[in-house]
Amino acid sequence: MLPALIGLAFLLVPLAGLLAKAPWATLPSQLFSPEVGQALQLSLVCASLATVICLLFGVPLAWLLARGDVPGRGFLRALVTVPLVLPPVVGGVALLLVLGRRGLVGQYLDQWFGVSLPFTTTGVVLAEAFVAMPFLVISVEGALRAADPRFEEAAATLGASRWLTFRRVTLPSVMPGVVAGTVLCWARALGEFGATITFAGNFPGKTTTMPLAVYLALETDPDAAIVLSIVLLLVSVGVLAGLRDRWIGGAT
C-alpha cells in the first residue's frame, strides 16, 4: 500500500506544485500574450499535422506488421519500436544527418527541388511525426492482431475486395485502438522537445512550440514558463479526458 501511495504522490505532487506556484495575479495577461498564443497555435497545428502524417503512414504500416506476409516481421516490428526508446535528441540528430542540407536524402531535396527541411515548421512536423509514429503503430497493430481475421474472410465470401474489407470491416473493429493510438501519438507530438529543438531549432513563430517556449522562458521569465506549462498540462488532460469518455472508456 505504502509504495503505491508514494508512487501516486510522486506522479501528482509535481503537478500540484505547478498549480501552487502559478502566478495567478498575472495569469490572464500572461495567458493571452502574443508569445503564448503563437507558441500554442504552432504546437497545436504541428502536432495535428504530425498526427495526420502518422495516421496516413502508420495505419498501413501497422496493418503490414499485423497481417502482411512479409519475411522478418518480428525484426521489422522491433525496428519500428526503436524511436520509442531512442532519446529524442538522437532522433533529431539522425533526422539532421538524413534530411539536413548535406544529409543523405536532404542534399538531393536541396539540389533538385530547392527544399530544405531543417529549422522550418515542416521540420517541426517531421520531427514530431518521427517520435510519435511508433505510439500509433504499436497501438493499431495490437488492435489488429487482436481482431479476428475470420471476419475478413467472411467479408471476402460476401464479395468484398481487400480495400472494402479493410475500410468497412477491419477498421471499424479496431477503431478503439486507432483512436487510443491517435491520442497517444498526438499527445506525444504535442510534448515533443528533443528531436524538435535538434532538427528544427528554436525560432519563435516558426519552430518554437510550447515545450520549447517553456524551456526558453524558464531562463528569462519563470512565471511565463509556469503559465505555459499549465496550458500544456490542461490541453493534454483535456484532450485525454474528452476522448476517454467518448472512445476509450465505455462501449462505442
Partner: peptide, 14 residues
C-alpha cells in the same frame, strides 16, 4: 473468394 458466387454461414456466424 470474393469473386466466387458463394454464400457462407460460419460456425459462429461472424
Amino acid at each position: 473468394a470474393e469473386r466466387r458466387p458463394i454464400g457462407v454461414v460460419f460456425q459462429d456466424y461472424l
